[in-house]
Amino acid sequence: MSTLALPYLSRPRWRRPLPGFGLSLGLGMAWLGAVVLLPLAALTFRATGLGLDGWLRALKDPRVQSALKVSFGTAFVAALVALFAGALVAWVLVRYRFPGRRLLDALVDLPFALPTAVAGIALTAIYAPTGWIGRYLEPLGIQVAYQPAGIVIALVFIGLPFAVRTVQPILESLGHEQEQAAASLGASRLTTLRRVVLPELLPALLTGFSLAFARALGEYGSVIFIAGNKPFQTEIAPLLITIRLEEYDYNGAIALAALMLAASFACLLAINLIPLAFRHERRSRRDG
């Protein structure tokens, strides 16, 4: 045997660290089906069995409608606040270098690791009438805890990381060249922000808003402590689902849970469609 063939024969054969596509896909879909799809399918099946009359009877309850208004209203406001604050935090983390930057970057992810019940208890201790901040707001007639404002603060706390982490990578890839070119052409800061930065950030901003809204819509642990849970005032839909189950009103709980599931799925669908819509718009502009 020629010695020239020895290196070729001794070359190790490349192997994938995971098994083939079929087996990997099968295992992944099996876990996804058992953990996620099966419970959702069971809920959908039970919800379809209620019929139109059952749905209307459950959703026409004034208490249910009030809880839905509180949940959707506070989630929308909190997502807007988290989007604005998160964009500013992402801008500071990307555009500036300062002492404690890495610490601030790590603190952004704290709501991901912190149990939501702990966050709710901490926020209540701060904003309650006898809390660190609440004691100074109470004489001014401003009450945060046990009011919708407290719910918004709790939802901003858990939604802020989504806004930061969706905007931050886009800012890092954007660079300074386009902003410097706009400034060299005489554009003001507002014009540069409106004509250069925001068009590039808009898909990420909409995605961050959708993620924060979907997360806030189903939040439970951090809200029930600071909300006060007063029916027709600060009672949220996830809490009402638990109450309906404790009252053995399974049809009412299923109808409300299915509605929340549909709203969350709509948000997730929007998250996936937003980049495709902007990509199609840019392609049409380029071709036009």
Results as ranks from 00 to 15, higher is better:
T44G: 04
L27V: 01
L25W: 02
A34E: 07
L50K: 05
A34K: 12
A41L: 07
V36D: 08
P12E: 14
L27Q: 10
R15E: 03
P17N: 12
A47G: 00
A47P: 07
L18G: 07
G28W: 10
V35S: 04
A41Y: 04
G22E: 11
P39F: 05
L50R: 13
P17G: 11
L18C: 12
F21C: 15
W14R: 15
G28R: 11
L25P: 09
L25S: 14
S24G: 05
G28S: 08
P12M: 11
L25T: 08
W31T: 06
G26D: 01
W31V: 12
V35C: 04
L37S: 04
L32W: 05
A30C: 08
L32D: 08
W31N: 03
A42Y: 12
L38K: 14
M29K: 04
G28I: 13
R46M: 13
S24E: 07
R16W: 07
A30T: 02
R16A: 14
M29V: 13
R46W: 06
R13H: 13
W14Q: 15
G33Y: 05
L25Y: 07
A41I: 05
A47D: 02
L18N: 01
G28D: 07
W31I: 14
T48A: 15
S24T: 15
A47I: 03
G26L: 11
P19I: 07
F45N: 03
G20L: 01
R15S: 03
L40T: 01
L40W: 01
A47Q: 00
P12N: 14
G26Y: 08
L27N: 05
M29D: 04
L27S: 06
L37V: 10
S24M: 06
R15D: 02
T48D: 00
G33A: 14
S24D: 12
A34I: 14
L23Q: 12
R16I: 04
A34R: 03
W31M: 08
L37W: 02
T44A: 15
G51N: 13
L37D: 05
L40P: 06
R15G: 08
V36H: 09
L40C: 15
R46G: 00
L32Y: 12
G51Y: 05
T48E: 00
